[in-house]
Nucleic acid binder design. Structure first.
Lengths: 339, 339
DNA sequence: AACGCTAATCTAAACGTTTCGATCATGTCA
DNA sequence: TGACATGATCGAAACGTTTAGATTAGCGTT
């Protein structure tokens, strides 16, 4: 900018005024300055600007796994929304790892991000402290956090799983295996509650042996399914509370020599692009990823636009059961349900 | 830092020296300073540091679609690699859109990213100019760019498709449909070359009606497949040069009332997590995503470590044909190939 | 002609670091 | 004892912006 000012024989203040439109500058000088900018190929240094202004027009986004199709989609939507608003997005993947998450959030705050969207991990104690100290707006995504009182976008997980399990019960299933992710994040609580509520509403006993836990990865789903299928009285249906784990479920079913839906019915949380292309077409609980991403972005953009003092807003969206053909009515022949 | 200096009754220079270890500071002052840092909860401002140092420890990463599983995986690997190295990653999705890409790269350069990894879009003319002006190292990912002479990591696309098509030919297929992405990016050229080479090597004619183009999206694959299947003498196999498009291919096959592999064989570029879980298990060309991401990260990290003047390095990795059961031998019964 | 008003422009301080060179003890050596 | 090297600390400039407040010029009023 100094060079531009010299070339145009004006002060840097005038150049700044023209670029930002913060003051009127005469047509004559405007032209000289614009010419100088072109000649020199001047580009404003956003870092210097950030330092002075105290804002970076950059936000931080942390998710557990970008390879989980739910997060992939949400990240994509959020990225586009902020792109439109002229913000850059710094992406971090925590790999469901608590220390990583805390380090990354600190890294982002050091870099003076203007806001944060966090699909958190862990109990949130440190997150709470970070959020309290750092004076940036935070939007919680997918997972709320006790004690952290801030904007959030979540799914009505309990209702969604209730619907899915009730669907299985209506098909005649009585022993329904349930594979949960670890309990330290809120959705896993709520989804389990939905499972229990559905069983209870149907007057079915909640049998502990039918519930297994995993750590969100394919291998965990595989192991959990193997255990369920080895039970003396094995379940006729399995619901996986997380998408990557259901891959393991399907592989375990295949490896043990069974097939879905003939021998066992399967449904899971989170839809994905391939779900209705192959056989079996998997019955899933689809989250409204577009809406979730947009709402999260809007909440944060609203705070960034200056609406700092409004009370925390929690948006709860509804999931949708996508009924396909991976669950068969008990008693019906396999033929009658294949596509 | 000023507050810390005052609280510890030293100068800011001493505080800086201690924090960065750039000069020895006496145990006594060290202790006072560290105490003050704790008391105040001081965190170094990375923006001010960047301004002074001329480096942000942040890189920019642009990909066409993060929802394409190939890019999802590569982004994940790259993000982790830079995370380990203490760098932040700014992610941009260009949606295969040229203007978007150019804007985003400028946005990143304005923010003084230290380096760029680009899975480019378009003819690269502007990219070339940007790369020339901006004095940051650039690594091209997946797609090279005529005239832009810089580090790159690509696949041996021609060979990979040659292998896949040759496999189909060996199974007895003679009329093999080919669905390409648009030709303005290098891999599509090379993949097409692999297709033609394989046909030629087998003495088969290259029939123009068997080649269709799409714009990388599911709907394009759907339309292209519909056209291929409507041909008077329809192909017995279809190869899709891009992963999202093959979803469209499978849907078109289903909608037209055919089934794979009984009526038509399908293979495609890019593997994905579900490929061997459902039926048919799709035969794909798997890219070594882990290696691609790591190599790209390493090339850039090497430049960032100061190795600026080495000549451009182009790494070409090999794809791997994952043979599953979506392609049947011509003449064999459907039974003999189902899993 | 003196005055005030407005519009255009400029000067200089500030943002929070890093770092060069200066300063000042302190101890060592001739 | 004076000169000098050494080690620790500090002052101040610099990075490239923004912006408050000062300055100047032009012009209409009285």
């Amino acid at each position: 900018m100094l060079h531009v000012a010299e070339a145009a024989r004006v002060s840097v203040a005038t150049v700044s005024a023209l670029i930002n439109g913060t003051a009127t500058v005469s047509p004559e000088l405007s032209q000289r300055i614009e010419q100088a900018i072109r000649d020199i190929g001047y580009k404003r240094n956003a870092i210097a600007r950030s330092l002075k202004m105290g804002t970076t027009r950059t936000i931080g986004l942390t998710v557990p796994h970008i390879t989980n199709p739910f997060f992939t989609d949400v990240v994509s939507v959020i990225q586009q929304a902020f792109d439109r608003a002229g913000y850059a997005v710094m992406l971090c993947c925590t790999d469901e790892h608590l220390n990583t998450q805390d380090d990354q959030i600190r890294l982002l705050l050091d870099r003076m991000v203007d806001g944060l969207i966090v699909a958190r991990v862990g109990d949130g104690a440190i997150l709470k402290r970070i959020v309290d100290d750092a004076n940036v707006p935070v939007v919680l995504l997918d997972r709320v956090c006790q004690g952290v009182d801030t904007d959030a976008v979540v799914l009505d997980n309990q209702r969604a799983v209730f619907d899915a399990i009730t669907y299985l019960i209506d098909l005649g299933h009585r022993r329904i295996g349930y594979i949960s992710g670890s309990f330290d994040i809120s959705p896993m609580h709520d989804r389990m509650a939905g499972y229990r509520e559905a069983l209870q509403a149907a007057g079915l006993p909640g049998e502990p042996e039918l519930v297994r836990f995993g750590n969100f990865h394919e291998v965990d789903g595989y192991n959990a399914t193997m255990q369920l299928l080895s039970l003396h009285d094995r379940p006729s249906a399995i619901f996986s509370a997380n998408n990557p784990m259901v891959i393991g479920t399907m592989k375990a079913i295949r490896d043990i020599g069974l097939s879905c839906p003939e021998d066992i019915s399967v449904a899971c949380f989170d839809d994905f692009p391939w779900s209705d292309v192959f056989r079996p077409q998997l019955t899933t609980v689809a989250q409204p990823v577009q809406a979730i991403g947009e709402q999260a972005a809007n909440l944060l953009l609203d705070r960034l636009a200056g609406n700092r003092d409004a009370p925390p807003r929690k948006l709860t969206l509804k999931g949708r059961l996508m009924i396909r053909n991976s669950c068969r009515p008990l008693g019906a022949t396999a033929q009658s349900v294949s596509a």
